[in-house]
Design a protein around this nucleic acid. Structure first.
Lengths: 146, 146
DNA sequence: TGAGCAAATGCAATATAGTTGCATTTACCG
DNA sequence: CGGTAAATGCAACTATATTGCATTTGCTCA
């Protein structure tokens, strides 16, 4: 993710002003193929223009609340952020490597979860389902065996 | 979870000494029907006997590493801990209420995930799959509507 | 255009969760 | 009983995130 998303349009659709910081944050998240930590995003945005750490956190909170980005969890401290599912991106599971700490996107179809039954029977309200696979990525696995 | 687990036996099987602190940590986790945060566990164990925060963290790390307990993530900061899947407990998804912040166990069958295909095709090594449903629990949903 | 205003951002201080190094205590083994 | 390794305690520290308040930015309407 993502060449296909017009960030300006997305922000406007959510009723948010299109500031340079917000665009840079979105670009930082979208230009990598995998979710980033707040610290990573802060560092990447900072390459373009000085920005305050707090501003990054606030933008991330705002974008997550508006469902533009998605907050993802892992076994590491701190959250990761990726573009939220939308017309261009189907919801998909992630893979967390317990060795190198990188979070990767798995293809939407790689792990089928049938939420139908739960949605029909659960007494509360379901907003989203997060599926994360933990283990060793190919790289780390190979390095261990040599 | 869990009346069915003999914690002493479980610790011994993992080659760990059965200290009072470890038993109290396991009891604290097992006696509630849902996973607890490190802070909760620290507080509950402290009711029996003074214990150091660091000791709790170290025991949690150790038990998680030995697969006796399972570290769970949520949208909140910090991890939750529950008894790990074993002969008495099938792996199961969890529900995180974004309003009250409580993490609950869902029944093992409530959300079927077919990992077969992924396990056959994934180039790395898969250790576990964590499935978390986010939304509003029944309680919080009712309180909002009144 | 520019004054007024709300939203966005910056900055410093603080909070929360977890970690590290080292000293002390406990529990096992001969 | 004495020696030794494991477990625990304590203080300091790190990383991540949040809060309150001051300043800047950018939109709106005269």
């Amino acid at each position: 993710m993502c060449q296909d998303c017009d960030y300006h349009k997305i922000l406007a659709a959510a009723g948010l002003e299109t500031t340079r910081n917000r665009l840079h944050v979105l670009e930082a998240i979208g230009e990598r193929g995998f979710p980033l930590s707040a610290g990573d995003i802060y560092a990447r945005v900072g390459l373009h223009r000085p920005i305050n750490r707090v501003t990054v956190y606030r933008i991330l909170d705002l974008l997550a609340e508006k469902n533009i980005i998605e907050r993802l969890s892992s076994l590491k401290r701190g959250s990761y952020y990726g573009l939220a599912p939308n017309e261009n991106h189907a919801p998909h599971p992630h893979f967390y490597c317990t060795s190198c700490g990188r979070l990767d996107c798995l293809s939407p179809g790689s792990l089928a979860v049938d939420t139908e039954h739960l949605r029909n029977t659960f007494p509360g309200e379901i907003e989203r389902v997060e599926v994360r696979v933990d283990g060793l990525c190919q790289n780390c696995l190979q390095q261990k065996s040599t």
